[in-house]
């Protein structure tokens, strides 16, 4: 294949480096997802409480992440940490903190929406059957809530994986940066490299996110009443 440039993708070494770059991003995404799910459940339950003050506080936190772009938040912590905390945070730490904070807000909103969408008669009928408070939760509320949460929560994972591509802005060595290095290294030999490398990265992201979002759609169909 003279000069089609595709062979840049056939090099094992290049593929391995791209995979390592991808793993860095996915690691940030996965850690953030786990933290977000755990904290998000508490945050969501907190929002369903009838306390006006707590609700307003939670709402402001959520809207702060909805209105201001995530990239701006990354910049704020990345460049601002030195002034406020007098320490220097590296890109990975900054990303994990910001993505977890954002994910907690989004997850919390999902949990809040779900818990408040379970009709009151479900609680009342369960109590009328003589179930205890614990049994009401265990057998009636949690199973229904879980089914409604699952599709949107899984969807949130794809959103977080996609958003973690922003870490390139705060100097984390991830797949785009590795791709750039490979392209620059092959500049002379292989001028077509950038098309194939960036096309490949594009496709890889699709391959990761597509099955997850498909799964979430399937759950949604299966578990909707």
């Amino acid at each position: 294949m003279p000069n089609s440039g595709f062979n840049v993708l056939l090099s094992v070494n290049n593929l391995r480096r791209l995979a390592l770059g991808l793993c860095g991003t996915l690691e940030i995404a996965m850690i953030s997802v786990v933290i977000s799910v755990v904290l998000g459940v508490f945050y969501g339950l907190l929002m369903t409480k009838k306390n006006r003050f707590i609700y307003v506080l939670c709402r402001v936190y959520l809207d702060a992440f909805r209105i201001v772009p995530i990239l701006v938040w990354l910049f704020l912590l990345f460049f601002g940490s030195a002034i406020v905390f007098h320490t220097d945070l590296d890109g990975v730490t900054v990303s994990v903190i910001i993505f977890s904070m954002w994910g907690t807000a989004e997850m919390g909103d999902i949990v809040r929406g779900t818990v408040s969408s379970i009709p009151t008669h479900q609680w009342q009928s369960a109590q009328a059957l003589g179930l205890t408070q614990w049994q009401v939760h265990r057998f009636v509320i949690i199973p229904q809530a879980l089914r409604r949460i699952a599709p949107s929560a899984i969807n949130l994972i794809t959103r977080m994986v996609k958003t973690t591509s922003l870490v390139v802005f705060v100097g984390v060595t991830e797949i785009l940066r590795v791709g750039k290095q490979i392209i620059e290294f092959n500049m002379m030999k292989n001028p077509m490299a950038s098309f194939w490398i960036y096309g490949f990265i594009f496709f890889v992201y699709f391959l990761i996110c597509y099955p997850i979002s498909k799964f979430s759609k399937k759950l949604e169909k299966k578990w909707s009443y």
Partner: peptide
Amino acid sequence: NTPLVIQLFFLYYG
């Protein structure tokens, strides 16, 4: 299912 950053990279450099 793909992020905008990646799409832009492909459009602009690829």
